[in-house]
Amino acid sequence: MPDATVVHDEVVMADGAKMTARDVDVFYGEKQAVDKVSIDVDSHYVTAFIGPSGCGKSTFLRCFNRMNDTIDIARVGGRIELDGKDIYDPKMDVVQLRARVGMVFQKPNPFPKSIYENIAYGPRIHGLASAKADMDEIVERSLTRAGLWNEVKDRLDESGTAMSGGQQQRLCIARAIAVDPEVILMDEPCSALDPIATARIEELIDDLRGNYAIVIVTHNMQQAARVSQRTAFFHLGNLVEYGGTEAIFTNPRADRTRDYITGRFG
C-alpha cells in the first residue's frame, strides 16, 4: 500500500484543471510502472515531474496524450481528462488529441525534411492552412514563438537535421506549437543540450507559459526550480508529493522528497 500523496493546499484547484488524472495505473505486462496517480494540471503554470530514474515519469507523462497506446504491452487504467473529457474514451480521435496535447522529446527528432516542412507538416494534416500564404504565416509565427525565426528565416529550405542540437530542439517545440496545442508535454527536453541552448529553451518555456499548459519531466533539479511553478515528485511509480515549486524546493514535507532533492537518496 503506497503512502498517500502529500498534496500542498496551493495546488488544489478551485475551478477546472486543464488536465486531470485520477487513480492512473500503468502496467508493462505484469510490471506496474505507475501506481494510482492522481494529479491536476493547470493551464497557467509549468508543472515539473521529478524523481529518480525508472520511477515512471515518462510513462505517466505519455498517458496524457496516449503515447502509451503505441507500446503493445502497456496497459493504462484510471481516468485522464482534458477539459473534463475522458481522453481514453473509444470515441476520442487520437490524432486530434495529440494535436491538442503536443509532445517534445529528450532527443530532438526533427523530420529529415526542410525546416519549413518540419513546421508545415502538422498544420497540413490537420487542415489548419489551405493557402500557401496561410502556411507561410503559421511557419513564421511558430518559428518566431520558438525564438528561431531570425536564425533560420534565410534557410527554411535547409534540412532540419542539419541544425545544432539546441536549434533542433527549438524546431521541435516550434513544430509542436504550430498546430495550436493546449498542452505541451516535454520529456527531458534539455538533457542533450549545453547550458546556453538549455537557457534558450528555458526562456522559451517561460515565454510560452500562460498560453499552454506545460508539463516538463526533468532530472535537473535546478531546472525544475527555474522553469516550473508546480512540482510533482515521483518515486517507484507513486506520486509522493505535489506542491508549489518554491515550497517543494525549500520545505518539502515528505521525507522521500526531501532526501531526493537534497541528494540523500539511499
Partner: peptide
Amino acid sequence: RAPMAQDLR
C-alpha cells in the same frame, strides 16, 4: 553545491 530544502535553509 546548489543546496536545496533543508540544506539551503
